[in-house]
Every structure is written in C-alpha cells, then in structure tokens.
Simulated scan of single mutants.
Amino acid sequence: MNILPDMTDNDSKNIKYSITKYLSMREHSCHELLQKLTAKGYNKVLCEERIAQFNEADIQSELRYAEMIVRSRVAKGKGEKIIRSELSQHAIAPELIDIAITEQEIDWDALAIQVAEKKFGRKPAKDWQEQQKRNRFMQYRGFSHEQIRAMKSMR
C-alpha cells in the first residue's frame, strides 16, 4: 500500500506557478527556465513538458528572449560576437539569433566608435602598446577585428 500521495499533480501545479512567476518578471529562455526549475528539485521531464506548453501558447518565446538580450547588451555597449555567444549558451537556435540581431538594425561600426570614445575619449592612442590595449578591450566587448579597424579609420 502506497501511503505517500502522488506528487506529480502537485509538482505540475508548482512548476506552472514557478514558470508564470519567472515570466512575469522578464523573458526567460527555455534553457534558463529548465535550469531554475531543476535546481528547485523538480522532475526534468515534467519541467520540459510544462515549458513546452508555455512555449506552444506563446507565453514563453525564444525569439522575444533573444530580442530582449540583444537590446539590453547593445545598450551596455556589447558587440555582436559576445551577444551571439551569450545567446548560444542559452541554447537559442542560430536562426533566431540572426533574426533578433537583424531586426534591431544595429550599426556595429558606430556602436564600436561610441564605446571606444566613452572608454578612451577622442584622443588617439599615443603608442603601439596603448593601441593594443584598446584593441583588446574592444575584442573583450565582442567587437570583430573589422569593426575595430573601421573604428580607427572613421575617427
């Protein structure tokens, strides 16, 4: 005789509540929701089923999540490479990443100039070492070699 009640129904309701709570605060990727729910000790398969239901109902959207991340990171002065990397780590499909980035119509060269001027001012680098330091900073921020070169020629 099983004296413990079947927790699947109760867990399912708790998972639904948790997903609703998370999504009411901000957009989350499926990957992120799954991590948070399994960290709470919920069954992974049950969590995946519930997340899929939210996705099918368009309550959770990978594209909206990707768009939010792109807008947020561009506002922080991050380059395309670092944005793509972050979205890939959240298991966002490459085609959704492309859509989210192209929809924003970002001028990456202009953003690179803006970031560089905020960090270093308008003065040119005084020597080769300082120029290398600036290049490393811009690469760390996620800008490509081409964008860094374009930034130097546009100044």
Rank of each mutant, 00 (worst) to 15 (best):
E48W: 07
I69W: 12
R155N: 10
E49H: 13
I99H: 01
D58E: 14
K119F: 04
I51D: 10
N14I: 03
V74M: 07
I69S: 10
M154I: 10
L4Q: 04
S88Q: 09
A110W: 08
A91D: 12
K40V: 08
L111Y: 13
I99P: 02
H90N: 13
N135A: 01
E130M: 11
I99G: 02
K16H: 11
I148K: 00
K126L: 04
A66Q: 01
M151E: 09
A57F: 08
Q147E: 15
K13T: 07
G41N: 04
R84V: 02
M25N: 11
T102M: 14
D127R: 05
N43Y: 02
Q129V: 11
A125G: 13
I97M: 03
S29L: 03
D98A: 10
V45A: 14
F137H: 13
K78H: 12
I99E: 03
S24T: 09
F54N: 06
R73E: 15
K81L: 15
T38F: 00
C47K: 04
K152F: 06
Q35R: 14
I82N: 08
R141D: 01
H90K: 02
K118Q: 13
A66R: 01
I113T: 14
T38L: 08
S88P: 04
K44Y: 08
E95W: 08
M7F: 07
Q132C: 10
A57Q: 14
R136Q: 10
